[in-house]
Amino acid sequence: MAKTRHIKKTTLIIVAEGAHDKAFLDHMKSLYDHRDSGQKVTINSADGGSPHDVIKTAIKKTSHAAYDQKYIFMDSDVAIKQQDLSLAKKNNIIVLLSEPLCLEGMLLDILGQRIPENSELCKRALHPQLAGQPTEARSYIVLFPQSVLDVTTKQAIVDLRTLLINQVKKIKKA
């Protein structure tokens, strides 16, 4: 009788700031996270709020399970207080930032488009270009295929690609 062999997978969680960020991360996961990667990736949402709220939510969402790696993916339009960054670090959570401003600002920049002066205007500029609702992963497929994401030098995208294909050396902490 053959024995079943269990291969231990590393576990990774990325807590997105909100629903749009989660949908984009789900899109990236579909492109880069393969079954044979040796890891189990969980994408979750903090459902918005201040950087403090997002960090506290991420701590709550990650405290019930022993994740090997924990990340937050959030906007950079609101400054993160040093005490909140310290709290994330104390809980072994690495913060990845969408720059400039927010997810939509970063994605507009990747497309080579003008970046409006605030996050709301970035959303208004990008969302009509998507192939559906910004809360659905499939909406990002047309504008952000793997060929586009593979060549961008945006640090958050580079870090996310590295995480999702399980090629982590050491992601720089924010």
Rank of each mutant, 00 (worst) to 15 (best):
T57D: 00
D53S: 14
S86Y: 00
L31C: 10
Q133V: 15
H64I: 03
S98Y: 01
A58I: 00
S50Y: 00
Q83F: 09
H34E: 09
L97H: 03
N44R: 14
L108V: 01
D33G: 14
I141S: 14
I43N: 02
V41Q: 10
T162E: 15
I157H: 00
D33E: 14
A65D: 02
L31W: 12
D84H: 08
G18F: 09
I93K: 04
A65N: 06
G112Q: 06
T42L: 05
K81G: 05
G18K: 11
S63C: 07
H34C: 15
D26C: 13
A79L: 09
C102V: 04
A131V: 01
S50E: 02
G105N: 06
K70M: 08
K9M: 14
V95C: 01
L85F: 06
A156I: 15
E104G: 08
I171M: 14
K9S: 13
A16Q: 06
H27P: 14
L143H: 09
S63M: 00
L85D: 13
K3P: 03
K90E: 08
Q167M: 15
I93Y: 04
D109V: 01
K173S: 12
I55S: 01
H127S: 12
L12A: 05
D36R: 09
N118F: 06
E117P: 04
I80D: 06
Q133N: 15
D26T: 05
V95G: 01
I14N: 06
K9V: 13
I110T: 00
D75S: 03
K173H: 05
D33L: 12
I7S: 11
I94S: 09
N92I: 04
A66T: 04
A46G: 13
S119M: 04
G132T: 12
K173E: 10
A131Y: 01
I80Y: 11
D75E: 03
V151T: 11
A2S: 10
I94D: 03
T62G: 00
E99T: 08
L130Q: 07
H127M: 11
Q83E: 08
L126P: 08
H27M: 09
N118E: 09
E104Y: 01
H127D: 15
A174M: 09
L25M: 12
L97K: 08
R35W: 11
Q113D: 11
G48E: 02
S76A: 14
L164S: 10
T10C: 07
A2G: 04
T162C: 14
Y71H: 05
I165K: 15
V41P: 07
H27S: 10
E17Y: 04
P128E: 02
K22T: 08
V168F: 10
Q167C: 12
Y67T: 05
K89V: 02
Y67M: 13
V158P: 00
S50N: 06
T152Y: 12
G132Y: 08
H34N: 13
D68I: 01
T152N: 07
L164Q: 11
I55G: 03
E104C: 05
L149T: 15
S139N: 10
L130V: 12
L87R: 07
A156F: 11
K81D: 13
K170Q: 13
S45K: 10
L126G: 11
R138Y: 02
K172V: 10
S76K: 00
A125D: 10
Q167R: 14
Y32R: 12
D53Q: 07
L96V: 06
R5P: 04
Q129G: 03
I7G: 01
